[in-house]
Computed example of a mutant assay.
Amino acid sequence: MRFSRNATGTLFVGGALSLTLVALAYPAMLGFDKVSTAQDRVIAQTQWGPLTEQDRDFVVKVRAAGLWEYPLGKIGMEKGTTKEVKTAGEHLVDGHAALDTTCRKIAPMLNITLPNVASPQQVAFVNQINSSTGREFDSNFANILRITHGSIFNTVAKIRSTTKNSLVRALADQANNTVLDHITVMEKTGFVNFDQALFQQTTPPKLPTTDLTPPPPQPGEPMVVLTPPPTATSTPVALPGEQAGTVPSPTIG
């Protein structure tokens, strides 16, 4: 994937983490002109249960998260200066490849359009982290990713506890395990500033929707696939009638 260098980056002043962070705020729905303010509004009845706007948001959001964290994981494996940072990069690649497989599996079944590119703000995070080197890279990598995963953790729990759609519920189960794992490996790097992380998670600024929304795919554009690593330990959700790790041909159910 290529990332635009024109996206607005974030700043680190005097070694302190200063982020403009709502990276995993709900993106606007792709393929729909209007979005209701009531996120629990049912937009479709499916054989797996009713699908709400927040259910659809969640599937799009998990996909978008992988589109910036997966390549950033590869960057961390290459540029990290410690074993712990490189290990954290490996976990990003492994976990998001499996989540992405699940998203691509269930999206056509629920008639959800998935993005092929992360949001402008997420792209800016990749550019900011990748532009640093050495211990500054390690710190930027660990802190930004710890904050974004901490921010999404409560959202995953909300979806898991409220959705009536079994496919979305299965994705939430997988996402919960993956996000907790990624929080843990970031903390194990020893670079996380917990005071800054808590502040950024609880007081995110309001940004324009255009900064937070991944663009829809272009007509005829092939879908980006996040390939699992050769030593993958994470597995996609297995749907009824299939074995874990397989990807059926997309069908609208």
Rank of each mutant, 00 (worst) to 15 (best):
Q201G: 01
L171D: 08
F191V: 06
N177W: 02
F125D: 13
G49R: 07
N127L: 15
K74W: 06
R41Q: 15
S18E: 12
G14F: 00
Q201F: 04
V168D: 11
P208W: 12
V192A: 05
Y70K: 01
I106R: 08
V192Q: 03
L212V: 06
A172Q: 09
F137E: 02
A175E: 08
G95E: 01
R146A: 15
F12Q: 13
S166T: 13
L21M: 10
V168E: 11
G76M: 14
S36A: 15
L67F: 09
A64N: 10
A98W: 00
T235D: 03
E187C: 05
F153D: 14
Q54W: 08
M109C: 08
F199P: 00
E53C: 01
P229C: 05
S161Y: 07
L19A: 10
K164M: 13
T52V: 04
P240C: 09
A244F: 03
G253V: 05
I183H: 00
E84W: 01
T101E: 06
V62N: 05
G76Q: 06
L239I: 15
G150N: 06
Q39T: 13
T87C: 00
V117Q: 12
L226T: 02
A118N: 09
E221W: 04
D173R: 09
S151R: 13
Q218N: 10
T233M: 01
P222F: 04
V247T: 14
G190K: 10
L198V: 13
T184P: 00
T213A: 08
V35M: 14
G245E: 03
I129L: 09
P204I: 05
T155K: 15
M109L: 14
F137D: 02
R2I: 13
Y26M: 11
P217A: 10
T87G: 01
K61F: 00
G76Y: 00
N177H: 07
V247F: 12
F153Y: 13
K34W: 05
S36Q: 11
P248V: 12
G95Y: 00
D211T: 08
V60W: 01
E53G: 11
E90F: 02
K79M: 10
T184N: 12
L226I: 06
L239F: 06
T46F: 07
I159G: 03
T189W: 07
D94Y: 01
G89S: 08
T162W: 03
G66V: 10
V123P: 00
F125R: 11
F199W: 10
